[in-house]
């Protein structure tokens, strides 16, 4: 086990975030505030409570998830795409470090940043709404697991992408639709029955529902289904990333 090597990559990535520290924190705070102003105050005042939770508070888990999803994919994909693009990947590939260790280092760093972003949005939300947290430990655990999962997903996009355009396409084409349609700003129980069934194929539904459960003690689907979906998504991403390193897919020829 090359712990020094893992630590070196982790520190390198954290230093990279450090250079853009303020922009990367200010942007989610402003975005979140805008959502609160639009959804919370302007529209929210005309919305009834959803399942006994005021609308302003109801959208917080979805907002945190949306920002973390975007940040994670952006950071993790860029983290591995840049060395590929600049050619500095040669050093990682020729180093005495295993594929799993490389993934731990890169994804660990990106996930750290995502967790920080999630917590900052959580804190910002308190400025706008009363936000009770029913299961604080579960909430924190869910936050971390989601960060890791999203970062793994971002990491594999970074390996897969062969241009900056491809790097942008997945967040725009996949993440936003899935998150918005996954009940980030509403309960899927508000949808007509047919759409409720269709929506159940969207993995983000389970993540938002589970995360919302940790806040309010209830969600659209059972907690077991949420944990199962998260574990499945995480396992799948990890398996694909390991396979990419083993075979050298788009990393080595």
């Amino acid at each position: 086990m090359n712990l020094l090597g893992v630590w070196a990559i982790y520190r390198f990535e954290m230093a990279r975030f450090g250079r853009t520290f303020w922009t990367s924190l200010v942007v989610p705070v402003i975005t979140t505030s805008l959502y609160f102003i639009v959804f919370g105050s302007a529209i929210g005042s005309r919305m009834t409570e959803i399942g006994g939770v005021p609308y302003g508070a109801f959208i917080v888990p979805g907002l945190i998830l949306l920002s973390m999803f975007t940040e994670s994919i952006g950071n993790a994909s860029f983290g591995i795409y840049m060395p590929k693009w600049a050619g500095t990947i040669y050093e990682i590939l020729s180093a005495p470090i295993s594929p799993l260790e490389t993934v731990i280092a890169y994804v660990g760093a990106a996930a750290t940043k995502s967790v920080i972003v999630g917590l900052v949005i959580f804190a910002t939300a308190h400025l706008f709404v009363d936000l009770p947290v029913a299961h604080p430990f579960a909430m924190f655990a869910f936050l971390i697991l989601m960060a890791v999962t999203f970062c793994l997903f971002g990491f594999l996009i970074g390996i897969w992408a062969q241009s900056f355009e491809q790097l942008q396409v997945i967040p725009l084409l996949v993440v936003y639709p899935l998150t918005f349609l996954g009940g980030a700003f509403y309960s899927i129980k508000m949808l007509p029955p047919l759409w409720q069934t269709v929506t159940l194929f969207n993995p983000v539904v389970y993540l938002i529902s589970g995360f919302r459960w940790t806040f309010f003690g209830k969600g659209d689907v059972t907690m077991a289904a949420s944990i199962g979906a998260l574990a499945l998504f995480l396992g799948l991403c990890l398996a694909i990333v390991i396979w990419m390193f083993r075979t050298g897919y788009r990393l080595k020829s």
């Binding site: 090597g5 070196a8 990279r16 600049a86 050619g87 040669y90 050093e91 990682i92 020729s94 180093a95």
Partner: peptide
């Protein structure tokens, strides 16, 4: 093994000392 590749692949924003120290640790030293 040490490798100096043909192309100048470097991290533009890193300092000389930081990038050389990074390499040493990456190789487990």
């Amino acid at each position: 093994i040490g490798l100096v590749p043909q192309e100048l692949h470097t991290d533009a924003f890193e300092t000389v000392l930081a990038t050389v120290s990074f390499s040493r640790k990456l190789f487990g030293r």
